[in-house]
Amino acid sequence: MSVGAPKIPVVVAEVVELNPLIKRFRFVRTDGKPMPTFSGGAHIVVEMDDNGTRRMNPYSLMSDPTDTSGFEISVRRDDAGRGGSLYMHNHVRPGMAMQVSHPVNLFGLDLRAKKHLLIAGGIGITPFIAQMTQLEHLGHRFELHYSVRSPELGAYADDLKSRYGDRVHIYYDNQKHMIPLAELLEGQPLGTHLYVCGPKGMIAWVLGSAEAAGWHPSTLHSEEFLAPPVGHAFEVELAASRKTITVGPAQSLLEAMEAAGVDAPYLCRGGACGQCETDVHRCDGSIEHNDHWLTPEQKASNTKIMPCVSRFHGATLVIDR
């Protein structure tokens, strides 16, 4: 159950291979209605039917937020992942019917900002593409610093450079370029907000440096979707549904509940939004908390679990679902 909003029926209008790792997908509606507009930073959940396995992955929207003719996302292939990105790369073709969620924004722009400092790593560029389009429409001041492995993999670097000129700065790892973070953090006008999206290490580096440099936490924004990690199979007792289910090694607890016909709430499916938070009745063992939502105290107490990304090992886990 994705709280309320109906799914949007779509057809794949276009698949563009940007480089060996990244493909761009365009979806248009099949019911003739306009796509909703959205705010830069929003994502959608794409539903896939992978030979009977239902996969639902969140992807940031990168199309123009005012474009009601379609949605665009970019997907980076993850060969070691659970299969969602591989499915998108290997099986999704133009003309295929799919379903996507309404947009949800967990990485919104703070429109009070006097300037927006955007820091992207790799495929983390996608929410910024929509945000920059929106900021440009609104006439807001922004600056992008985009770090990517190589010119071959810098999917949108040239395009963004030509669109926004010297407001876009590109750094190639294979040419030993580094984002001059310390300098950037020192040189911003009062009222600047910082946004970072990219690999875990990069987010930690940027946020840690900014806090150490005295930036107020309310001016710092980040987004990291976690792919549900793979692990050992484990058993869970669902108290409210009176069912005991086994979560497979490449399955998340949320997916296992859904496969068992249990209607569990979710929104981002990536450990960020908090929607799937579930009370733990009994825990003989330890919960592997992989989310960004619960506080360290909640995690230590083992009284809550986020079924979209977290796992368990031990004798018994009973949850309120």
Binding site: V3, A5, P6, H102, V104, L267, C273, G274
Partner: peptide
Amino acid sequence: LKFLLKLQLGAPV
């Protein structure tokens, strides 16, 4: 508040 922070586009309450 927790509920409203998750209020979804297309699903007013």
